[in-house]
Design a protein around this nucleic acid. Structure first.
Lengths: 196, 196
DNA sequence: TTATCTTTATTGAACGTTCAATTAATAAAA
DNA sequence: TTTTATTAATTGAACGTTCAATAAAGATAA
């Protein structure tokens, strides 16, 4: 059965299977068996490639964070203006949902666990601060620095709040699209309010 | 050791111990042993009073929901005006934090789990919808119904978002106070914007 | 080309641990 | 004495990890 050069393939297979299992069974219900079964591989392979269950969990979170980051990078370029950039940030934060419906539940599980897992908490902070500083960067081109920072804090909370409530109510894609629109119009209203 | 009429005392003891354990160890790390140890009781007592671990978990969530509800009821009376009532709703939603620092983490754990537990999800929906309809009720006295509903949806998201970000960044009470102020001024700005 | 050696990839059973639940025993109060 | 309250001991299932075995692929040498 074995072929050479399987490592990257298997790693991705196991990460995908982890997202799937956490979305379906929760972090509590996710075992090395549920993951390896989803991936169509044996349980031992997890320790082989990730050192253990914990290593795979952390690799999965890192993968999700990278996906979010890449999504935004793919949308903007050097001639994107500040307002457009703000809209792209919002789109990126709601985009993972549209690609894979199971991703949102998985995120929430990981964030809850980050309260009791140092490495997950570190990763969560990177994500949370990146959202706010990305927003602040663009707001600063549209208003004074103090207002910009305040606008970034409020926008980040609004985005996360809309997202959280949509996830918890097990919303469909339409509902997420609705939340994306609300977030965008809130950011636009902040620009009108404080904009120079 | 046994005394008569211990039931309500023991139940509360075990619920308090559950909040404590979930805050410290997370829902994953919470066992009937960690709970009973916190309560200074034996593990068997959990099955006796709650039928099992799951029953105790659900009773704990119901207790938290009731506390939140009572907190709001205690603040308002028949001569509270709409704007005051909105401020009290926000205060109540941030108040549990101040009383007990460990409560917020516990909430987040429960909400994450609600994605994979029918009864918890039902309770979560009650809470989520109550916040929004409480907000809508007061907004309707200050603006047209359509704007009131929109304001309620946005305010609920803002409150939950500020709360979520504060919890995840392991904020102290000052940070929560700051978030409470932001939420209040956001609601006031909505009243100014749409208010008749 | 064939035979041998080495590395890479993978499995699945065995092990020790942890957990929730149950049971039997016990102690106080009625 | 009977009932209520509680503990301590026990059970069996489920879990993550480890590890010996194996199989294919690639490399080397005859």
């Amino acid at each position: 059965m074995p072929k050479v050069g399987m490592e990257p393939v298997r790693r991705q297979q196991l990460i995908d299977a982890t997202i799937e299992s956490v979305a379906t069974n929760g972090l509590q219900g996710t075992t090395i068996n549920s993951i390896s079964k989803n991936a169509g591989l044996s349980s031992g392979i997890i320790s082989h490639y990730f050192g253990g269950k914990q290593g795979l969990i952390e690799a999965t979170v890192r993968y999700l964070l990278t996906s979010l980051k890449q999504d935004l990078i793919g949308k903007v370029n050097h001639q994107t203006n500040a307002t457009e950039r703000l809209m792209f940030i919002i789109e990126a934060n709601f985009a993972l949902v549209q690609q894979r419906n199971d991703t949102t539940r998985t995120w929430l599980s990981f964030w809850a666990q980050s309260m009791h897992d140092e490495e997950l908490h570190r990763l969560q902070n990177v994500n949370s601060k990146r959202l706010q500083s990305n927003l602040a960067f663009s707001f600063k081109q549209l208003m004074p620095i103090e207002q910009a920072n305040q606008a970034a804090e409020l926008s980040a909370a609004m985005i996360d709040g809309l997202w959280l409530r949509a996830v918890l109510s097990k919303s469909d894609n339409n509902q997420f699209k609705h939340c994306e629109k609300l977030a965008k119009s809130y950011v636009l209203s902040l620009i009108k309010q404080y904009g120079a």
